[in-house]
């Protein structure tokens, strides 16, 4: 299991990093945590000539929060830092949950939140809650910067909009709405170290009455080539009082929207059924939590 030979660069500043990705182009891969990259290198799925290790670039790391404005998470922030951040737990609970389910303790200490989106595995943990929380990605290059919603960044299985010379540098998370809560869950055989058969996150905002749903986002993972934002669930629930009958209807609608495949981890039918189970459970959990806020 040997890697092909490559040249290794370790830029110390963002400027150096942009210069390198611009100059080396598609012959280069950016190395962040390496927990996915090293595996595909060993399997010889890709053979880059250059690796650009961005772990030394401080500007790409860390979690910053400003009350009323939201949070900015550097793309090279370790999953374990996200998992143990009090602010993420307090404000973006679904992301906290997903970060805690990614790989093992060892993997979380190495893997980065940006890498999880750039690798763009359909079964990835963190893109699901990030999309649910309306995260925008920050993409920078020597030429400048652009921002777009994460759902527009991930195009499909291992495909993103990232162009030559560009690096994903961070995520911008808006301040959570009042009386809102987010929740995440997954379905897998074991209670740890799983490649999710299905995952899902819900963000639910209540009206002042504490019963009526003001806004809602439900995103499914591992049932489509990229995070799948439910259109039907908000259509059924927004503006309505929360109730089990409507939730059942919404869950069935989500299952209808899912486009799962059968593979070694689960059959398409099972995945579809689990979408309904997760939707029911997460809507209830998020509703209960939003009433507590």
């Amino acid at each position: 299991m040997y890697l092909n030979h490559f040249e290794y660069y370790a830029p110390r500043t963002a400027g150096e990093a942009f210069e390198l990705v611009g100059r080396l182009g598609d012959q280069a891969k950016v190395l962040a945590g390496g927990t996915d990259l090293m595996l595909i290198l060993k399997e010889k799925l890709i053979k880059p000539q250059y690796l650009i290790d961005i772990n030394g670039v401080k500007e790409f790391q860390g979690i910053a929060y400003a009350a009323g404005k939201g949070a900015v998470i550097g793309a090279a922030t370790k999953i374990s830092e996200v998992e143990h951040s009090a602010i993420i737990r307090d404000k973006y609970f679904a992301l906290y949950q997903a970060a805690g389910e990614l790989g093992s303790v060892q993997v979380r200490a190495m893997a980065t939140i940006g890498g999880n989106s750039c690798h763009a595995s359909p079964a990835a943990e963190t893109p699901t809650p990030l999309v649910t929380l309306r995260a925008r990605v920050v993409i920078k290059s020597a030429a400048g910067e652009r921002q777009l919603p994460l759902e527009d960044f991930i195009l499909g299985n291992r495909k993103t909009v990232l162009g030559v010379g560009e690096i994903l540098t961070g995520f911008i998370l808006p301040e959570p709405a009042p009386r809102s809560a987010s929740r995440y869950a997954y379905i897998g055989l074991r209670n740890a170290m799983e490649i999710d058969a299905v995952n899902m996150a819900v963000n639910l905002v209540l009206e002042d009455d504490g019963r009526t749903i003001k806004d809602l986002r439900l995103v499914m993972g591992s049932v489509a080539p990229r995070p799948l934002i439910s259109a039907e669930v908000p259509a059924i629930l927004v503006g309505q009082e929360f109730g089990s009958e409507l939730v059942g209807k919404a869950a069935a609608a989500a299952a209808g929207e899912a486009r799962p495949i059968s593979d070694i981890r689960a059959s398409a039918e099972y995945r579809r059924e689990m979408v309904a189970v997760l939707a029911r459970r997460l809507l209830q959990e998020a509703f209960d939590a939003a009433r507590e806020v």
């Binding site: 074991r190 740890a192 170290m193 490649i195 070694i264 981890r265």
Partner: peptide
């Protein structure tokens, strides 16, 4: 051992 699932400490 990624896809052949032995129980983890969580099980």
């Amino acid at each position: 051992l990624h896809d052949y699932k032995v129980p983890t400490a969580m099980e």
